[in-house]
Amino acid sequence: MQVDDALLSRLEKLSFLKISEDKREEIIEQLSEIVGFVDNLSELDTEGVDATFAMSDAATPLREDTPDCNPEIHEEILKHAPKSADDFFIVPKIIE
């Protein structure tokens, strides 16, 4: 499986990362090496093996529908937020 610049661009978009020009080739090489390595799993016979893995067979715990909110949390987060005003998180405009 080869990683090329087109694939890197697609992955950058999904990751919201911009890899600088001078690092692109190196990253492509590294990712190629890694992907090439993990391809070794195709050597394993996994016929009939469960496609999902969980540590235990237990069911997810269910929580009672009882409100319990600690106001300190949002107060502290808003206080230290990069940009907040009137208890909103402020972000630059979204281009629709």
Partner: peptide, 21 residues
Amino acid sequence: IRYGNRVEGKNLEETFYNTRS
């Protein structure tokens, strides 16, 4: 957006890219 170090851009998308990169 909500916490940590933000690197602002001209718009939201740019802000995401800059902050994370």
